[in-house]
Amino acid sequence: MADANVTSPRAGSLPAPGPAVTKAGSGDVARAMRRRGDQSRFWWLIPAFYIAFLILPIYWLVNMSFKTNQEILGTLSLWPRDPTIHNYMVIFTDPSWYKGYINSIIYVVLNTVISIAVALPAAYAFSRYRFLGDKHLFFWLLTNRMAPPAVFALPFFQLYSAFGLIDTHIAVALAHCLFNVPLAVWILEGFMSGVPKEIDETAYIDGYSFPRFFTKIFMPLIASGIGVAAFFCFMFSWVELLIARTLTTTNAKPISAIMTRTVSASGLDWGVLAAAGVLTIIPGALVIWFVRNYIARGFALGRV
């Protein structure tokens, strides 16, 4: 053997030669581990504080929703002294309250379906082909994502009045397409560009027609992209209020608009207001929980 200190190639069959050891003091070692380039030991404090800051106002709302109005106005208590579900009962028993949720969900789902349905072929076109004016078109779509809703509120009202669509779910769903369709095209185009073109070509050679190829092969490949796009469509339609409120009066009014109206009418029913607020947080929380594994990936594309 060429090397002096090799004991045996059969690892561990012989004791190792004991070289002189000078063990560094444990204090030195601890300091060394924390040295430059390593994250400090208290890194987790930063996200922890941030999350605490995020949760605190929500906690206060939840806390209030289980209190009576006397307790809310009377004493400042960190948890309900006299917990009550009365506030929630008010909402669940009064159709003018709970219908708001149904309205919101109807137009949000409608909008998500419409947005994804029209965005899919368009995103495919943008990701696979070049055509006359494609870049300008893409930019123009993008500007609509950036359009201030305040600018559009009044013209929307007049437009949908002219078509007799005021106070219908479809009106809100269509209006929200203004910002959700460009967004969906953008996200889907990113995912589609990640699918190699050879897959399309192979499918055509194998005799697939375009619609069959698109639904049977292509859509499953970008399923996570569709999920991410649907998530963001849902999110932006769910949180928008200005346009939704402008286009509805009673039959299709979203819950968030009903909340403001009832508060201004009945004065200071803080408990019910808090309960209604809590209930609007729940659908969003559920949706995030279901897509939690895709969120980072959707953002990773840098396309939102």
């Binding site: 996200p47 769910w238 949180v239 928008e240 209020l241 939690r292």
Partner: peptide, 19 residues
């Protein structure tokens, strides 16, 4: 972290105001 941090993004904007 992801779920808790994304939470405020999915609250209707007027509810954010109310909170």
């Amino acid at each position: 972290c992801l779920v808790l941090m994304a939470l405020p993004l999915l609250i209707p904007w007027n509810v954010v105001g109310t909170i």
